Amino acid sequence: MTSSMICLVLGLPQVQQPARLWALVAVPLLVALYLLALRRRNRTGMRFPNTGVLGAVLRPQSQWKRHVAVAMALCSLAAVTYAWARPMGIEKIPRERATIVVGIDNSLSMTATDVDPTRLDAAKAQARNFISTLPAGFNVAVVTVSGHPRVVMPPSTDRATTERALNAIGTENGTAIGDAITISLQAIKEAPGGASKEPVPAAVVLLSDGGNTDGSDPMTAANAAASAKVPVYTIAFGTQTGYVDVDGARERVAPDTTLLAQIADRTRARSWTAESAGDLKSVYQDVHSSVGYQEVRKEVTARWAFYALGFAIVAGLGVVSMATRWP
């Protein structure tokens, strides 16, 4: 039987150095030696001609004290050996659950230059500024809004990694706003501590020109967000005169501000244009803080060293009690 199987059978945490557990063999060996010593002691007791004098001189020792002292010493040895093997336990770490999902429209229409320098670059800059104002404990996720939306950054408090993911977004074909909202709702469930029965306090900030071309109906997704009590704030980028050049042909790409306003209204949120967005603090101020717990594997050597210390103290008290003839 391997050391890992022993831990599994005994219900003990797994260890990083299972080979060191073989030192536990010393415990049953010492138990056997102790029992052998007790047996020999009972067979070869000292004889005195006058047992009355012996009883007056020596007070009888309590056998249970000796047994307890030995048992505690062996338990201390077993615990310190287990600590030496570096056990790994599960610790519940408190994590902020509040999550903000930033949706960036990266469709070809976002390359229009009617917003300086382009709609996409302006949206990224607006997103960076907004993320920098969020409380440090809030989780931020980034979702692309193209014909095939995806999560490019799961909920995290790592602002540097989030910004790199944001900056790396390039253009893609199509715009599926409904699918992007659905994926944003799924991303919220990935927030640390999101396994709690209570819904994760969250909001979605959608930066887009609103021209939906693919995927599911945006208003159906908005209804799902409203049912989940996740407001979807929208920021419309672009002007009515915006255009892009595709295969040598110039195409008008006026923003669909009506659709974005309807999504925000359906989810009890607000909608802005790129020029009027300004301070977005109202987005996260309405998202209440909520702390959940995430299970993390962590070394618990100190815990077992503490157990060993406790056993050693009890064993020491037993030895001192016998040596000083306490009652």
Rank of each mutant, 00 (worst) to 15 (best):
T81N: 03
R164Y: 11
T99E: 13
G211M: 09
Y82D: 00
G103Q: 13
A32E: 01
A236H: 03
V9C: 02
P18Q: 09
I263S: 08
Q16R: 12
R128F: 13
R95N: 10
G178P: 02
G194Q: 01
G210V: 13
V319S: 06
A123F: 14
G242Y: 02
E163T: 13
G52N: 13
V70F: 13
T162N: 09
V296C: 11
Y233V: 04
Y243L: 08
G137Q: 12
L108N: 10
V101K: 00
A302V: 12
Y233C: 03
L206D: 01
Q14V: 09
M153T: 15
P117V: 10
G45S: 09
A277W: 00
R164E: 13
V246W: 12
P13R: 09
Y34S: 00
A112R: 09
P231N: 04
L77R: 03
R47A: 11
D247P: 04
S208M: 00
T133M: 12
L74T: 04
L185Q: 04
N42W: 07
P255E: 00
V31I: 10
P60M: 06
T161R: 13
V80R: 06
R20G: 09
R43C: 08
G292I: 00
A308W: 05
I100L: 07
L58G: 07
D279R: 01
T51N: 10
T44V: 12
V31P: 01
F306T: 02
P60R: 02
H288P: 10
S109R: 13
M88Q: 03
L30W: 07
A195L: 14
G242W: 00
G178L: 07
Y243Q: 15
E190T: 03
L33G: 04
S216H: 12
V142C: 15
V70E: 07
S196H: 08
A305E: 12
A122F: 05
E96D: 07
W304S: 03
S107T: 10
E172I: 01
